[in-house]
Amino acid sequence: MSAYQRLEVTEVGEVTVVRFRNRRITEDIDIQELGSEMFSLVESDKREKLLLNFSAVEFLGSAALGKLITLDRKVKAQGGVLKLSNIGPNIYEVFAITRLNRFFDIKEDEADALAAF
């Protein structure tokens, strides 16, 4: 049984692959819960290699970017690695404008990302 309401979590070798159940990652309902679930992967489950696959995500705003930055800090604090993949063009523009496309390790698709761990 999955402990995650907002995330789909699978294992591929040593890498934990995370997909999002929500098409829109917005402030109104899910952002705090989503943040808690992502952080627990690192803090409680001690997963060190994380890949966030955004293929299901059509929209995210700055609040979601904030959660990703905090997640990255937590992963690095444990000596882990975080990668992102399958980001569509609209959302990629959000990363590019904020220059977070350079801050995060973003790969085209899941296979590219898995090969880069």
Binding site: G61, S62, A63, L65, G66, K67, I69, T70, R73, V94, I97, T98, R99, L100, F103
Partner: peptide
């Protein structure tokens, strides 16, 4: 400021 978790809304 790139590490700050907030402060991007107006820019976007």
């Amino acid at each position: 400021h790139i590490h700050a978790p907030c402060g991007r809304g107006v820019m976007l």
